[in-house]
Amino acid sequence: MNHLKQIAARLPEYGVDAMLLTSEPGEFYAVGFHGEGVVVVTAGECFYFTDSRYIEAANHLITGASISMTDRSRNYRAMVQEVVDRCGVKRMGFEEEYLSVASYQIWKEGVTPELVPAQKLVNGLRAAKDQEEIELMVKAQEITDRAFREILTFIQPGMTEQEIAAKLQYDMLRFGAMRMSFDPIVASGPNGSKPHAIPGPRKIQRGEFVTMDFGCVYGGYCSDMTRTVAIGEPTEEMKKVYHIVLEAQLAGIAAARAGVPGKSIDAAARKVIEEAGYGEYFGHGYGHSVGIEIHESPNANTRDESLMPVGAAVSAEPGIYLPGKFGVRIEDVTILTENGCIDITQSPKELIIL
């Protein structure tokens, strides 16, 4: 899988003769290969440069690009300059969101074309997943759902947050994941009020919520999900908050479709929580795009006015966090269509009491 033709087709729109891709996500999106290399896309030809550690794999896996290896006499900049001279490149787009100031200066001094910020060229393409990308994300989510089913039979009072996080990671790997899409979050009891709590030695107790936010990478694409479960009988307040969050998530999913701004999807979910009197306890956005990276654009938050494209993969994750008491978050991943969205997360969302 690669997206070289799609990138090449958008070069005129951004007024550049070539696109330089130096980031790991940009490299993978362009040529479908996880290595350490540089991609140059022109209107007529595409090039991939890497070193001796990856050249054999690159030759085996990459199609649609001329592949060359660096050596002691030719570094990446020299190889890119050869392409510049051969193809007459005057203006070259680059990924300004990934290139450090120091690296930018090195590239600016090492090649002759004008370097033009063109992150939006790639971001716009990555925002709309094609069918092959969606299929990989569905598979990643299936692995994550399966790990959730396993964890429900594993959790016991007295077990630590770290033990649960370790089990989630082990199961996702043994079910076929390449790696985690992020370090799992496992937060029990009062730790649940911290949306990005780090799993620690705290032991799970009866009468508490446990929030688990986790995901994996399959075929280069991420999954992401959160479930909050009760260990023993929850209090009435815990049940109330859980169902408010669930209602908010369902409202956001109902509002999610291509052609609407992310802030409108966020507003639909946020309204439920605010009307229930918990608005001040929902501090983050409703969701973010997911793909090669766990956080991509566009986002479904209070500020993002970008119109969602068909094929956007957007998380649906409202939450309520009560400091010193508990927190609840429920998260699925949805694929946006012209008429609505498809929820690719299959785990149940009703309150589970273990």
Rank of each mutant, 00 (worst) to 15 (best):
N2W: 09
A8G: 15
Y14F: 15
A18R: 01
P25L: 02
G26A: 02
F33H: 04
G35A: 02
E36V: 05
E36F: 11
C46H: 15
A57N: 06
I62A: 00
I62F: 01
T63W: 04
A65H: 00
I67Q: 00
R72D: 03
S73Y: 03
R74A: 04
N75D: 09
Y76P: 00
R77I: 03
Q81P: 02
V89Y: 04
R91L: 03
R91N: 12
R91F: 00
S103H: 11
Y104S: 06
I106T: 11
G110L: 07
Q119I: 14
L125E: 10
R126E: 06
A128I: 08
K129A: 15
E133V: 05
K139L: 02
Q141F: 02
E142F: 03
E142S: 09
D145S: 04
D145R: 02
A147T: 01
A147I: 07
R149V: 10
I151E: 03
L152C: 10
T153W: 08
P157H: 07
A166G: 15
Y170Q: 07
Y170K: 13
Y170E: 15
D171N: 07
L173M: 13
R174E: 08
M178R: 07
M178H: 09
N191G: 10
S193C: 09
A197Y: 14
I198S: 14
R202E: 13
Q205D: 11
Q205F: 05
G207Q: 05
G207E: 11
F209G: 05
M212R: 04
F214K: 14
V217Q: 13
V229P: 04
I231R: 11
E233D: 08
P234K: 06
T235F: 04
E236Y: 12
M238F: 09
K239V: 11
K239S: 06
K240Y: 12
H243D: 15
I244R: 13
V245N: 05
A248E: 10
A248V: 06
Q249P: 10
A256S: 15
K263I: 08
S264P: 09
S264N: 15
I265T: 05
A267S: 12
A268N: 13
A269R: 14
R270D: 14
I273G: 09
E274N: 05
E275L: 04
Y278P: 06
Y281F: 15
G283L: 04
S289C: 06
E293A: 12
E296S: 11
S297P: 02
N301E: 00
R303W: 12
L307R: 09
P309S: 14
G311R: 14
A313W: 03
S315A: 09
I320F: 07
F326P: 01
G327C: 06
V328K: 11
R329F: 01
I330A: 10
I330T: 07
E331G: 05
V333T: 09
G340M: 14
C341R: 13
I342E: 15
I344H: 02
Q346A: 10
I352W: 13
L354S: 07
